[in-house]
């Protein structure tokens, strides 16, 4: 698939990776690394303003679903959110601006590719911490309407790729100028005891080394190469809370499955032991080009194969 250029009026004009742990929002001043993450969020916020997109598509690894994928469609969700783990950091009041018509269009795009999908628009629906952090920091005045897409806890590569492609279909069909935001950490091992903020560091040297390798790839714009490494990343540095490391699959699929991006790592820091980075990818013809990938591509989801039924 062809890359789009920054000058292009529609399509995905920027891809963003941010962590969803709430410290950069609630207490960035407590640790120099958290401050740098916050500054990186702020820099991306400014970049988004410059680009003047008309849509933010958030894919949050912290919003898990079971019945296919869910899409937030409440035009103005409002709540006071409290993180279930870091509740002592404070409450997060929010009102977001959701692009409900796009959410419905996205559902139709997903279904057209064989996916189970549904929109959710209920008072008090619990928007996950990661989405709340991303939208509060990247789109603080709700200047850009957003949608949020869940991450199915059972989905593997095929399903996730198709979800990404369906998002791209909907963006293209609507002639939207979109920024896509992936919410997730790199290595995800938290400390399992309380730490002093100043003592925060990536949990292990191995996690740190892998994180830096991932960021080296992303810094070179090699998104599809990173996506192809997802299974190995899951084995090496991911606590298996879910079956697979999915964000790079979704991110690459929604951005066109290639390596032709200008990558920028704005920050890489520890967040309570996790490896957390703020990265942007701008479509750019001067990327490192196509590699020979060893996993097949998927256009349509055909459902679970029920191999153990």
């Amino acid at each position: 698939m062809d890359a789009v250029t920054e000058e292009q009026q529609t399509g995905v004009v920027l891809g963003v990776l941010v962590p969803g742990i709430p410290h950069p929002l609630l207490c960035p001043e407590q640790n120099a690394g958290w401050t740098r993450l916050r500054q990186a969020f702020d820099a991306v916020r400014d970049r988004i303003r410059e680009l003047q997109p008309d849509l933010l598509v958030v894919y949050s690894t912290m919003w898990t679903s079971i019945i296919g994928h869910q899409i937030q469609a409440d035009p103005e969700p409002t709540w006071v959110h409290v993180d279930e783990l870091f509740h002592d950091l404070g409450s997060i009041p929010y009102t977001f601006r959701i692009d409900a018509p796009f959410a419905h269009a996205l559902k139709a795009s997903m279904e057209a590719r064989g996916l189970a999908a549904r929109t959710v628009a209920y008072e008090g629906f619990p928007i996950d911490t990661g989405s709340v952090v991303a939208l509060k920091l990247l789109n603080p005045d709700n200047a850009v309407p957003a949608v949020i897409v869940s991450s199915n806890m059972y989905s593997d590569r095929a399903e996730t790729l198709v979800v990404g492609k369906a998002c791209r279909d909907a963006i293209d069909a609507g002639k939207r100028r979109a920024v896509v935001v992936v919410v997730g950490t790199l290595s995800n091992r938290l400390f399992t005891d309380w730490i002093d903020p100043e003592d925060d560091h990536v949990h292990s040297a191995k996690d740190d080394e892998w994180n830096r390798k991932i960021l080296e790839f992303l810094g070179q714009g090699r998104l599809e190469d990173t996506a192809q490494l997802s299974r190995e990343i899951q084995r090496q540095v991911r606590i298996p809370k879910v079956v697979s490391f999915k964000p790079m699959w979704w991110w690459s699929a929604v951005m066109g499955q290639h390596n032709r991006y200008k990558g920028e790592v704005l920050a890489y820091e520890a967040l309570f032991g996790t490896g957390s980075a703020v990265v942007t990818l701008t479509p750019d013809e001067s990327g490192v080009g196509e590699k020979e990938f060893d996993e097949d591509d998927v256009e349509r989801f055909r459902g679970d194969r029920n191999v153990i039924a």
Partner: peptide
């Protein structure tokens, strides 16, 4: 469904009144 990766937590507020919406089955539980 109260998942705390750092230690075991206990509710410590005397009274709660709110709306619970299931994030996975919001069509069934509000």
């Amino acid at each position: 469904h109260w998942q705390t990766y750092v230690g075991t937590h206990f509710l410590g507020v005397p009274h709660f009144k709110s709306l619970s919406v299931d994030p996975i089955f919001p069509n069934l539980f509000r």
